[in-house]
Structures are given as structure tokens and as C-alpha cells.
Write a protein that binds this DNA or RNA. Structure first.
Length: 312
DNA sequence: AACACGTGGAG
DNA sequence: TCTCCAAGTGT
């Protein structure tokens, strides 16, 4: 309810005033579909998979269609890998789609189609790591656990520690940092959602909008004059020409073709470096994202095979 | 611990 | 154009 902090008390540097944060969140919160009241824990799991390393704007059009098509773990598990990979589309990191599919199968088979609610069990599931396990426990089941993603790490680094950027991820330290800030159990989920939201739309990595920040009067970094990062910037690897790009091109061909394709069809997708193309294809086969048929053609795993042979 | 793993929008 | 980076996970 009311602010219990005396009005004449000076703001405490390095603190996060929960009233300031909540007041801001009340009007600033984005109306994201996976935050609606009738969204199930599984559907929240799907959103978390899609949001791993992927901007909200790219997930926005995909999630609703996915949920409408496969609303439960068992429905998802019943789909073919090919259908799942196609529905994933260009979200990136297709291994996530495969793991989501596997995760659905485990939950359907071993957990009676019900998403587990505790962090330790969640972390054992395919594709669910430290962040996603806590996000699901918190946002789907309202468990008061620290939820630490890149946004939270950045907000804490600045507001609490006065650092422009978070240091290297350390699960132990990161969780302790946030656990120390967590309000009572009934407010923990809202607190984490607000902290993530703040990092996503105000306390951004590139150009933070400190004038619009509800924490500007207590943010230690801001109070210290927003000192630049002292961390040495490691050389960034270019994407163009990497195996990742080649894998993406090969998968593009397979996604776009409703029937299995020939080796020649794949070969034209990347001609600049044959060795690299071979390596990329081998890794896709290894990852189970591509399947080689008995006749030497290739397709997404589990794809319907009665195609070109039937037309002969 | 460091690195691989997609994609595309923003500045 | 080119760099940065977006709700991480697995090895």
C-alpha cells in the first residue's frame, strides 16, 4: 500500500525502490499475449523457448499461431519434427524448436501432460536451463524464485553495483543479487516481470533512457555519472560466412520444400566453400535437424515421404 | 570457461 | 555498410 519510507529520507544509492518500479510498471507494461490471464504454464514454456536470444517483436506473430495449433505438450509431441521446424520458421536457433519438441514429449509422457512447477525438475528438461526454469516457476506458478536474464543482470549491474555492464554471468552471484532484492512471495512474480521489462525498454544495453527510468534517483550508476564500461570489448565474430549461416541456408532449402530434396538442391545453397558446406550438413545431420533418406535425398526429420516416388 | 548456435532490426 | 545485440542452453 502506502510508501512506508519516510518522505524526508534521502534516496539510498544502489537500492531499488519497489514502489517506484511498480508504479512505472503499472503504466509501462507491454500488452504481450503470453501475459494474458488464460495462458497455461505450457504456453508460457513455449514463449520462453521462443524468446531465448530472440527479440519480442519476432516472437509476437509466431507464438499465437503455434499455441492455436499445439496448445498442450501432448499435442506438440504428436506433431512431426518437420512440422515443428517449419512452424518455428525463421526464429533462429532451430535446435530450440527440436528441444521444445523433446521437452513436450517428456512432459506428456512422464508428467501427465502437466508442466512441473519446481525449478530443479524443470532444469532437467530438454532446452530448459537456469533462466527458463525460474521464469516458468515464477511466471506460470508464481513461485518467489529469482529470475535472472540478460535484462535483469544489466539493471542490477547499473542500479545496484554502479557498473555500466554486468560482468561475466555467475549463476550463484546473480541469483543471490536478485534474491536479496525480491519482495514478499505475493509480489515476487510482478517484481521480476517489472525488472525484466525495465531492462527491455528503458535500461537498454545500447542507449538507456535514464530520463524515463523510475529508478533514476537511486540508480548507483546514474548517481555516479554513468561511467562507461571498463571491460575490454572482445572482438566480435562476423556472422557472414560462418557455419551458422551455411546451416541456415541449408535448412532454408529443406523448410521451403514440401518434399525431400536431392543433394544437388542442397549444394546450390552454398557454393563458396564446399568443405564448409559438407561440415554444415554433417552437423545438421548430427543434431538431428536433417534426415538422410535411403534413396540419398534429404528432408526435415519425420517428414512425409510418399512424394516424388508416387509421381513416377 | 569459452564457444557454437540463426536471424534481422536498429543506429 | 557494419557493428551491436535480442526473455540462453549445451558441451
Amino acid at each position: 500500500m502506502g510508501d512506508i519510507v519516510p518522505a524526508n529520507r534521502a534516496p539510498r544509492p544502489g537500492g531499488i525502490e519497489i514502489n517506484d518500479l511498480f508504479n512505472w510498471f503499472t503504466f509501462a507494461e507491454r500488452d504481450l499475449p503470453w501475459r494474458a490471464g488464460d495462458v497455461t504454464p505450457w504456453q508460457i514454456v513455449v514463449s520462453e523457448f521462443m524468446l531465448q536470444q530472440t527479440p519480442v517483436t519476432r516472437v509476437l506473430p509466431v507464438w499465437p499461431e503455434w499455441i492455436a495449433r499445439w496448445p498442450t505438450p501432448s499435442a506438440t509431441a504428436a506433431a512431426s519434427q518437420a512440422d515443428v521446424l517449419r512452424a518455428w520458421g525463421k526464429l533462429g536457433y532451430p535446435r530450440r524448436a527440436k528441444r521444445l519438441h523433446e521437452c513436450a514429449a517428456v512432459i506428456a509422457r512422464e508428467f501427465a501432460d502437466t508442466v512441473p512447477d519446481d525449478v530443479d525438475t524443470l532444469e532437467q528438461l530438454p532446452g530448459i536451463g537456469s533462466y527458463t526454469a525460474r521464469a516458468v516457476a515464477c511466471f506460470a506458478y508464481r513461485k518467489p524464485v529469482p529470475v535472472v536474464d540478460t535484462n535483469v543482470r544489466r539493471v542490477v549491474a547499473r542500479a545496484v553495483h554502479g557498473q555500466a555492464e554486468p560482468g561475466n554471468p555467475s549463476a550463484k552471484r546473480d541469483h543471490a543479487d536478485v534474491a536479496a532484492l525480491l519482495p514478499g512471495p505475493d509480489q515476487a512474480a510482478r517484481f521480476s516481470a517489472a525488472l525484466m521489462e525495465l531492462g527491455a525498454i528503458v535500461c537498454t544495453a545500447r542507449a538507456p533512457r535514464c530520463e524515463a527510468c523510475p529508478l533514476q534517483h537511486t540508480c548507483r550508476w546514474r548517481l555516479d555519472g554513468s561511467p562507461p564500461s571498463t571491460a575490454p570489448k572482445r572482438p566480435t565474430q562476423r556472422y557472414a560466412g560462418t557455419d551458422r549461416q551455411v546451416r541456415g541456408r541449408l535448412l532454408d532449402v529443406l523448410r521451403d520444400n514440401p518434399v525431400a530434396v536431392t543433394r544437388a538442391d542442397l549444394d546450390v545453397a552454398w557454393t563458396v566453400d564446399v568443405i564448409q558446406r559438407e561440415r554444415a550438413l554433417a552437423s545438421l545431420l548430427q543434431d538431428g535437424l536433417v534426415e538422410e533418406l535411403a534413396d540419398g535425398r534429404y528432408s526435415l526429420p519425420g517428414q512425409d515421404r510418399n512424394d516424388s516416388t508416387a509421381s513416377r
